[in-house]
């Protein structure tokens, strides 16, 4: 079942609330930009009951700003840093300042295992994607696109603007959970 919401914030709040009180029979919750996909085992949780649960669940308020955050150390040396700052009408120092001052939240994961779409409330960025995407973006690249920031968990193609690099491990199959930035995780970037 696909539950639909008016905004990213509403979808994030709904995901948090649904995840906090998932009844038996829920196999998976997949948050995205405007939706939460709810996969259930109908033998355990019949569809009408699942529908009622989704409709009756009030979205959670965003986590308080002082919630513990994962800190990601970043070298702001990305090949697109200067271009991106110029596109936003900022100096590179101002862009770095905004990127590190904000508290980000992992809204959802898409594109590749562990690739979190991070949003920051109050930070009004609208970063265009690159006109042509790169066939290879190195693992650990810190990037911007639209209102989102992200870190490439492994080498892959990509069209986001690359502003820096980190040595943080975003994806490790040996840890639980394997993704460092599971949906709902709060994140700070720190210039090193």
């Amino acid at each position: 079942m696909l539950a639909e919401y008016d905004s990213l914030e509403a979808a994030m709040g709904a995901f948090a609330a649904l995840d906090a009180a998932a009844p038996e029979g829920v196999i998976d919750l997949v948050p995205a930009a405007r939706t939460v996909l709810v996969r259930v085992d109908p033998r355990v949780l019949p569809l009408p009951a699942a529908r009622r649960w989704i409709a009756d669940t009030a979205p959670a308020a965003p986590a308080a700003a002082d919630t513990t955050a994962v800190t990601i150390p970043v070298r702001y040396d990305g090949p697109d840093l200067a271009d991106t700052a110029r596109l936003l009408g900022l100096t590179t120092a101002e862009l770095v300042e905004r990127h590190t001052a904000a508290t980000w939240t992992s809204a959802f994961i898409g594109f590749a295992p562990g690739f979190a779409y991070l949003v920051a409330t109050g930070l009004d960025l609208a970063v265009p994607r690159r006109a042509t995407s790169r066939p290879r973006v190195p693992a650990g690249s810190v990037a911007l696109a639209g209102a989102f920031s992200g870190v490439y968990p492994r080498e892959s193609p990509g069209g986001w603007q690359l502003i820096g690099t980190t040595d943080a491990v975003l994806w490790n199959e040996q840890t639980s959970p394997p993704a460092l930035l599971a949906p709902g995780t709060r994140v700070r970037f720190e210039a090193v």
Binding site: I27, D28, P31, I109, F111, G114, P178, A182
Partner: peptide, 9 residues
């Protein structure tokens, strides 16, 4: 491996 879709798997 069902149940990991939220992590992109």
């Amino acid at each position: 491996r069902p149940g990991l879709a939220r992590l992109g798997v």
